[in-house]
Design a protein around this nucleic acid. Structure first.
Length: 570
RNA sequence: GGCGCGGUAGCUCAGUUGGUUAGAGCGAUCGACUCAUAAUCGAUAGGUCGGGAGUUCAAGUCUCCCCCACGCCA
């Protein structure tokens, strides 16, 4: 038994995430966590909401709520949806927690002690009307290069020239439209991660088994242009973690907070403290401090490709810079984007399907299966309603659901509501066991490697093997002349349902529970011995015929949903 | 503009260090079966592996150039 720490990139607080966000981090992380638990490993699976920063402040203002109240409410909304999607977090924390406040301040102080923090005085744009400093992307104006009137402060979307906000002609605040902007001098803290470049590069180079997507992005940021840049870790905002030097005040930094990207990854650690403080566990340091029991922990992170730079460089720089025993990540699984019907999912335009809407129209297992079996691992993937409906109807309703249905109903009608006795197994059963032994091993290997799509394909092949077996042995025919032979075949079929319940649980936990319940399985342990697993249900063991595991989606429903989710969210 | 991931059957994708007739699922066509959610199982058809040049006994796989799509640019 090994110890596995798993974290999913923490979703931002300002709204419900879409399916592209889900499949890029939380869902595959859950798959892996469930799989490892199923294999008997000790797992700590953590996630949280990322609550600080300007977008949260603006969203709260728009909702007419104090930002703390807004975040608390949205956290509960996201936690509820996550739970309904079957995301089996051991704890779903908040980056605004007191634990994260203390820990973030601790790290800043520690980095300061190590001489890795410097103060930088810089000019920033201040909006008098908004009474705040404006981040670059909240300033628009006329591009000095091409004359485009809606150029953003960081870059002109028309001519793509990179800009400094002070370059803009007639700048205005995109928050209020105010034009009374002025340049003010302010002071910020920078993490000197450039000084850790060599150490980071060596570390990345040592990770030869990481996905190409992960390492290529990391190396690009390490080596592009002038190389890894130092990073501002503070902001002039109200909502955030107050800048402190550990437990002490930080002279000159009064009224400032840490940048959201500094405190968000630290929440991975603070979340473990929250987990303990919530009474769900003990000794969080044994998961996070290599000097306090975490040396044997394997830590795996899941995220979309947009998060890779922070997880391969900035956060490791924080850990390495602190240099006091915190655990570095062992494996980073990153994902590309899921596109929606030829374009991008868009939170702002409400294009695509969002997590709450998804659950309104179909069970979570249906979404879990399709999303995971099409996870954007090697390149961006494509969601279309036609493909989605075709795939889930075929895989879930026809191949798996119908298998459970046909065998349980046939047994009930010919032998009654218990596993039939009699008969002797022959070559067909031996061949099935040999085939499944190989397939289960391949499935496990793919899951161990977090090859999500390959694992899904293998699991599906395992389902198909059951149908092949029934088709070739044809108990409905043998029953007429040799009821004992039919009994063997049906007994094998019922045991296959149990096996499928165990193996499928990481992908489709609800349907798996229904399968195990139908056959009255008391043991859902991993089938290290497939032959033994296929004889777990003895003759005479009672079962029930479950409701259809999956209802097929109709063409009308498909057309309905395609129309409903094409445009702006209402 | 720079950089990055890709461009393989109608669709979604696999193709390890270059090596025999390029694979899978879906869809299509045909057949088998009739226990089952008109489900299942089998067979067949379908690709000049984005384009061009090169290295090699041998290239989807390596090198160079070009085209296309997507993304990132602190």
């Amino acid at each position: 038994m090994a110890r596995h720490l798993i974290t999913s990139a923490i979703p931002y607080i300002n709204g419900i995430k879409h399916l592209g966000n889900l499949v890029g981090s939380q869902l595959p992380a859950d798959l892996y966590a469930r799989y490892l638990r199923g294999r008997g490993h000790e797992v700590l699976f953590l996630c949280a909401t990322d609550e600080h920063g300007t977008p949260a402040e603006l969203a709260a203002a728009k909702a007419g709520q104090p930002v703390a109240d807004y975040c608390a409410a949205m956290h509960d909304v996201q936690a509820d949806i996550a739970q309904r999607f079957g995301l089996s977090f051991d704890h779903f924390g908040r980056s605004s927690s007191p634990q994260n406040h203390r820990l973030t301040q601790y790290f800043a102080g520690r980095l300061n002690d190590q001489g890795l923090i410097r103060e930088v005085t810089e000019d920033q744009v201040y909006s008098v009307t908004d009474a705040r400093f404006l981040p670059d992307r909240y300033i628009e104006g006329t591009c000095p290069n091409c004359g485009f009137t809606d150029a953003r402060g960081d870059q002109c979307d028309n001519c793509t020239k990179q800009l400094d906000p002070t370059d803009l002609i007639d700048p205005r605040s995109t928050i209020s439209g105010a034009t009374d902007l002025e340049v003010r001098t302010t002071k910020h803290l920078y993490l000197e991660q450039s000084r850790l470049k060599g150490q980071l590069a060596d570390w990345i180079d040592s990770k030869t088994d990481w996905p190409i997507l992960t390492t290529s992005i990391a190396k690009k940021w390490l080596n592009d242009g002038d190389g890894l840049q130092d990073r501002g870790i503070t902001r002039d905002l109200d909502w955030g973690i107050p800048v402190r030097d550990g437990d002490a005040d930080w002279p000159g930094m009064e009224g400032k907070v840490f940048y959201v990207w500094f405190d968000a990854p630290i929440e991975y650690i603070a979340c473990a403290q929250e987990w303990v403080d919530a009474g769900k566990g003990a000794n969080w340091e044994s998961w996070w401090r290599t000097d306090k029991g975490a040396a044997d922990v394997r830590y795996t992170q899941f995220m979309g490709k947009d998060n890779v730079p922070f997880h391969t460089l900035s956060f490791p720089a924080t850990i390495m810079g602190a240099d006091d025993g915190w655990k570095l990540v062992d494996y980073i699984k990153s994902f590309n984007y899921l596109n929606y019907d030829g374009g991008q999912f868009s939170t702002s335009r409400g294009r695509g399907v969002f997590m709450d809407q998804a659950l309104e129209i179909l069970p979570s297992d249906t979404w879990r299966w399709w999303l995971l079996s099409h996870a954007p691992e090697t390149s961006d993937a494509e969601f279309t309603w036609t493909a989605f409906v075709q795939d889930v109807n075929k895989d879930l309703a026809d191949v798996l659901g119908n298998f459970v249905s046909r065998i349980t109903k046939f047994c009930r009608s010919k032998f009654g509501d218990a596993v039939p006795a009699g008969g002797t197994e022959g070559p067909a059963e031996a061949a099935l066991i040999a085939d499944l032994t190989a397939r289960v091993a391949a499935y496990a290997a793919h899951m161990d490697a977090i090859e999500v799509r390959k694992a899904a394909a293998e699991l599906r092949a395992i389902w198909v093997a059951g149908n092949e077996y029934l088709q070739s042995t044809a108990p409905w025919t043998t029953f007429k002349t040799d009821p004992d032979a039919a009994a063997v075949q049906v007994r094998m079929g019922l045991n296959l349902i149990r096996l499928y319940g165990v193996l499928s649980a990481p992908f489709i936990p609800d349907a798996s529970a229904a399968m195990l319940d139908a056959v009255g399985a008391t043991d859902a342990g991993w089938p290290d011995d497939v032959a033994a697993a296929l004889h777990a249900l003895p003759a005479g063991h009672a079962f029930t015929v479950p409701d259809n595991l999956f209802t097929k989606i109709t063409d009308d429903q498909r057309d309905d949903w395609a129309a409903r989710f094409a445009g702006v969210r209402t």
